[in-house]
Design a binder for these strands. Structure first.
Lengths: 97, 97
DNA sequence: ACTATGGGCAAGTAACTACTTGCCTATCAA
DNA sequence: TTGATAGGCAAGTAGTTACTTGCCCATAGT
């Protein structure tokens, strides 16, 4: 569960996709492809982006809704909210036994 | 910079190492090896753990101090603190055009 | 009907990553 | 000095991952 999230976040292209969906939610696959190419100089095939979106969906970070022949993608930042909490204690621990 | 952090967190063994160092800081390489084997059923060579520690150090998540022939490792959770903030806005945006 | 658009399903390739094995150095105790 | 302990430096391998290419399906416009 957390494994999918961290694996999804490990790729810089996927993080850029999350950035894009944060800035403008409800983008289609083609819309994302265009923005990745234009704004971020990431030239990759449509399938590459599609596969990245699948990974993000599998991790629960992106939700998609289909309308006609369009498929819109939205970010779901909820799983990210407490992802690092396990290592951030209230105070700094030291290992004096 | 953030790339190293996410790449470091992508591996479950490295996350377990961070868990271990959170529970008990200042562990040596051998100490960590023992705990990974005993507590977490992760049977791997000393070098494997050493390489994981190197990745974590490279990401700034672990600091090490050498004393004599021992090398102690401590977690530094600071880089984790605001790592997901870029996707967590104050309110949910919707992309009605 | 036909054609263009938006997207999906593979299978293949190149690059990366985790892990191992073997040897080598440094520190401490006898 | 010898031997044991704690750790480092590669080079090699198996598995994973990101990306491509090619073909196929569905919806929408004419």
């Amino acid at each position: 569960m957390a494994d999918d999230i961290f694996k999804a976040l490990a790729d810089p292209t996927r993080r850029t996709i999350l950035d894009e969906l944060t800035e403008r939610s409800g983008q289609t696959l083609f819309e994302l492809c265009g923005r990745l190419t234009m704004k971020h100089q990431l030239g990759m095939s449509r399938q590459a982006v599609s596969q990245h979106l699948a990974v993000l969906e599998g991790a629960g970070l992106v939700r998609s809704r289909r309308e006609g022949r369009y498929k819109f993608h939205d970010i779901d930042p909820e799983p990210l909210r407490h992802i690092a909490e396990r290592w951030i204690g209230p105070d700094t621990k030291d290992g004096t036994p």
